[in-house]
Design a protein around this nucleic acid. Structure first.
Lengths: 197, 197
DNA sequence: GTCTATAGAAAGATAGAC
DNA sequence: GTCTATCTTTCTATAGAC
């Protein structure tokens, strides 16, 4: 279900080295040599496992997407509708550690590349669809159970919320000043009002 | 006010060549040679006018930001509060020509680079601040004149709206499926409700 | 200001041994 | 599967003439 292409032990090590290299250098001027530097074994071994640099990065994006989605599923599993949305919002907008910050920065930078890299775009499409659907289904379930105002359109509302989350993350990492708190407040306030007392 | 560094005729030609090269090749593997190819004069002349490639690109980003903001000001000039926000939303979410699409893609791609390029980040900070402020002041003016519900917090609301706009644009150009219509509908609907009858 | 020519560095990728 | 060594291309940037 998670499209986990089977990854050998070495391949997992390569993915981790790629992660480390991306954290350290960013994507813009990431070289295969830099990835190899984060890797116990040799540079040419990377070419044994992947046909090209682009191939390797595309594989990494799948790897990262798998990890990210598993993380999300774990956090929001088995919560009721309102809590699911709130948790998701807080999870996406919170940067508690340097590791999380670097991880998000990496994603934002790679996302920019998806403009012209079809393989990247494909992975982001997948993640977007799943997150949006997660919000939509929570909203729909809420309406069905009578906890949310029946006036809302779960599809559009989910699209709007997820766009706001994406935009806040992008702005946070590509401009000074942090818009995430305003967005978080607005969404929680909105949820308060949507809940039928 | 617009921080227009004075640009010589040749420099404007270089900016236009850079724009053409970015449209054609994207930022990811843009070379100075490719910029020169869109330019009547020689490659080395680029280095006479700019110290380095990064310098040239940073200058281009200022140039593009100036154009973009002038465009926005022109479209929203002298409109009343509600119309200003509606026009801004439609303007940012509408892609009517190939030129507009390419322009937006270019911005999104460059924005990804702002993660690790301080000079890029600085430019995006400026544009973000101005657009957010434009929305905020329109909302505040609307409240003051009694056309908007006095309950809203113009600052946070502007942050939320602008985040949604940014997110919709980013998603539109970095994933398949177009979330802009949902976001546009939601915002206009929201504005309908905010207007005190 | 503008050109041609090229230096110098770095990158992606492969050859071939073990 | 993994290594070392290296080929080849491409790129940024400069030198030096006009």
């Amino acid at each position: 279900m998670t499209d986990d292409t089977t990854r050998s032990e070495t391949e997992v090590l390569i993915m981790e080295a790629t992660y480390a290299a991306l954290r350290r250098h960013g994507y813009a001027d990431l070289s295969v040599a830099q990835i190899a530097d984060e890797f116990k074994k040799s540079k040419s071994l990377l070419y044994y496992h992947y046909d090209s640099k682009d191939d390797l990065i595309a594989a990494f994006l799948s790897f990262a997407a798998d990890q990210f989605m598993a993380d999300i599923e774990a956090v929001t599993a088995a919560e009721e509708p309102v809590a699911t949305v709130r948790t998701l919002v807080d999870h996406l907008l919170t940067v508690e550690s340097r590791e999380m910050r670097d991880g998000q920065r990496m994603i934002i930078e790679l996302r920019g590349q998806a403009v012209s890299e079809p393989r990247f775009r494909e992975r982001f499409t997948r993640v977007d669809d799943r997150l949006r659907e997660r919000i939509r289904s929570a909203l729909a379930a809420g309406v069905e159970r009578g906890v949310f105002d029946a006036e809302i359109d779960p599809e559009d509302t989910a699209g709007m919320l997820y766009a706001a989350l994406t935009g806040a993350m992008v702005q946070q990492h590509t401009a000074d000043g942090d818009p995430t708190e305003a967005v978080r407040r607005m969404i929680h306030r909105r949820l308060d009002r949507l809940v039928v007392d």
